[in-house]
């Protein structure tokens, strides 16, 4: 599903050039659950952003579903992203002015789904994420765990093929963290591909494979579980 060849990302300011990704070659198969680990500043989030089409690489190739997308314009990336990729962030990134229901509904608005269909889909996912009773609440009225469940609901409401999670448990206590990991595992079992950045070795254990990054390079790849298509 995902394949990168010598993927490079360099950040330049007037005086400093920072290599965030240095010839990274990654392959992720459909339905796989991959964890990316590494120290702060090693390029984990940058890799996730490039894979998530939030950012273009400086060099190398990026194949998404067998299409080379590294040179895509923003509009093309947005179109590809909105129907294929869901995001989960450490800081939840919910919109404060929208209710739980509206936050989850948001991605469906941008794919122009009908109102009835949206309603059905949002209610379904809120039920599934056990947050339906909070549908009319605003994010700041929820606990951290609840907020992240809303964020997960929003990420999966469009039924994306790929979910990218950037330290999804980073702001949660262990119980809520476990709960989120269980959700991701369940989604993965339903054949959603998941790539997760994490600092936590225990949560990384949920993945089929762990990629270790250091200074923009892949240093090791550990297969934790058997994965079959």
């Amino acid at each position: 599903m995902i394949k990168t060849n010598n993927l490079t990302k360099i950040y330049r300011t007037d005086e400093v050039e920072t290599v965030a990704l240095n010839n990274v070659n990654v392959e992720v198969a459909k339905g796989e659950f991959v964890a990316i680990m590494g120290p702060s500043g090693c390029g984990k989030s940058t890799l996730l952003n490039v894979i998530g089409l939030l950012d273009n690489p400086t060099g190398g190739e990026y194949h998404f579903n067998a299409q080379e997308v590294s040179k895509y314009t923003e509009r093309m990336r947005t179109n590809l992203r909105k129907s294929n990729i869901g995001f989960i962030f450490q800081s939840f990134n919910l919109i404060d002015e929208l209710t739980v229901y509206e936050n989850v509904e948001l991605p469906l608005l941008y794919i122009k789904m009908s109102s009835a269909e949206r309603k059905k889909r949002v209610n379904e996912i809120l039920d599934r994420m056990k947050i339906a009773h909070r549908a009319k609440h605003f994010p700041q009225q929820l606990s951290g765990g609840q907020q992240q469940r809303v964020a997960v609901a929003r990420a999966v409401v469009t039924k994306p093929k790929l979910i990218l999670a950037d330290e999804p448990t980073g702001n949660l206590d262990s119980a809520n963290g476990e709960e989120v990991m269980d959700m991701l595992t369940q989604l993965n079992e339903e054949e959603t591909t998941i790539i997760m950045v994490t600092h936590s070795p225990s949560f990384a254990e949920y993945a089929h494979r762990i990629i270790q990054l250091f200074d923009g390079h892949i240093v090791t790849e550990n297969i934790k579980k058997e994965f079959h298509l």
């Binding site: 939030l54 923003e74 947005t78 992203r81 909105k82 919910l94 919109i95 404060d96 991605p107």
Partner: peptide
């Protein structure tokens, strides 16, 4: 700006 970021991540085009 955060709201803009989120909206873009979940699929909002500039025009929206």
């Amino acid at each position: 700006s955060t709201e803009v970021g989120i909206r873009k991540v979940v699929g909002a085009q500039k025009s929206y």
